[in-house]
Design a protein around this nucleic acid. Structure first.
Lengths: 151, 151
DNA sequence: TATTGTTATACTCTATAACTATA
DNA sequence: TATAGTTATAGAGTATAACAATA
C-alpha cells in the first residue's frame, strides 16, 4: 500500500454519489435495452425465481419486501410466474392469510435459461476487460448489493 | 502485487455477470424508491440537464443517442424541461431540421438542486463505508459508465 | 381490529408507426 | 429520397385505494 490519500471519516468526495448513481442508472438502462427478446419473463419475475431457488418456499409478503415492490405488484408477478408454470402457490398451513410460493421443476429450468440469456451481453463486455478490472467489479457488486439493502 | 490468481483471458467467472447485473438492477430500483419527493423533474430529465451543462448546446438527436432513448422519448423529455423553463430550444442556423437545446440559467439552478436532493440517500450510505470501499466504488463507477457505452 | 393478499384503477416512462418539414 | 423531429398510440411495470378473508 502506498501512502494513503483517503479522506477522514465524514469527508466523502461529494461527486462520488452522483457519479455512482448515474453510472448505475445508465448501465441498468443499457442492460434493459440489451435484453434478449427470447426472454419471455419480466426481469423482476426472474429475480423472484432466483430468490425462490435460494430460499425454497417463501411467503408472498416476504417476496414483495425483498424485491421492494408493493404487495399488489408482487401478486401480479407471482400470477405471471404461475401462468407460466414456473411456481406453485399454496396457503400456509399455519396461517390461512399467508400465500407460500415455491419453484416448480419447470421454473428451475426457466431460471437457468433466463440467467444464460440475461447474462449474455454483460458477460461479453466483461470478457473484454482486464482480469484486474473484473476482480474490482466483483468486489464492487457485493458492495452495491449490500448498499441496496441498507436502511 | 501478490501472486496472481486471475484466470486467463476468456476464462471469466460465469457468475460475475449475473451477480453484477442483479446488484446493478437492485440498487437502481432502490435509488428510484429513495428519490426525494421534492424532486419535481424525472431522473432522465436531470441527466439531460447534466449533459447540457457539460456540453453546451446539443442537438436533440444527439441527446437521444447519448441517453439511449428513442427520439420521441427525448422530444417528450425536452418539452418537459422547456415547460419548466430549464432549457431553451432553437432551430440550428445551418440545418433547419435540427433542434438545438441548451441550458437556461434556471435549468442550471435546478440541476444543482436536483443533484443535491438526488444524491442525498446514496451519499449517506457511502459515508458509512470504509474509505477503501469508497475508493473501490469510485473506480467501479468509471468502469460501469464505460461498459454502458460499449458496442 | 390488524394483517395478508387481491382487485380495480391510474400513473410514469418507454416504444413503434405515421406524419411534417427541411435538405 | 433521406433525415430530424413530432404526434398519436400502445405497452410494460409500478403505485395507491378499496376490498375480502383470516387471525
Amino acid at each position: 500500500m502506498t501512502r494513503t490519500l483517503e479522506r477522514r471519516s465524514g469527508e466523502v468526495d461529494p461527486g462520488l454519489a452522483s457519479q455512482l448513481r448515474l453510472s448505475i442508472r445508465r448501465l441498468s438502462r443499457r442492460l434493459a435495452i440489451e435484453r434478449d427478446p427470447r426472454e419471455s419473463l419480466p426481469v423482476n419475475a426472474v429475480a423472484v425465481l432466483g430468490l425462490l431457488h435460494r430460499r425454497g418456499e417463501v411467503a408472498l409478503s416476504e417476496l414483495s419486501a425483498h424485491e421492494r415492490v408493493q404487495p399488489p405488484t408482487m401478486t401480479r408477478i407471482v400470477r405471471c410466474l404461475e401462468d407460466a408454470d414456473c411456481v406453485v402457490r399454496r396457503p400456509s398451513p399455519s396461517d390461512g392469510r399467508v400465500t407460500l410460493v415455491s419453484l416448480s421443476p419447470r421454473g428451475r429450468d426457466r431460471l437457468l435459461l433466463h440467467r444464460q440469456l440475461g447474462d449474455a451481453w454483460l458477460s461479453q463486455r466483461l470478457a473484454e476487460l482486464a482480469p484486474e478490472e473484473r476482480d474490482l467489479l466483483s468486489r464492487a457488486a457485493e458492495l452495491l448489493e449490500a448498499l441496496s439493502h441498507r436502511d
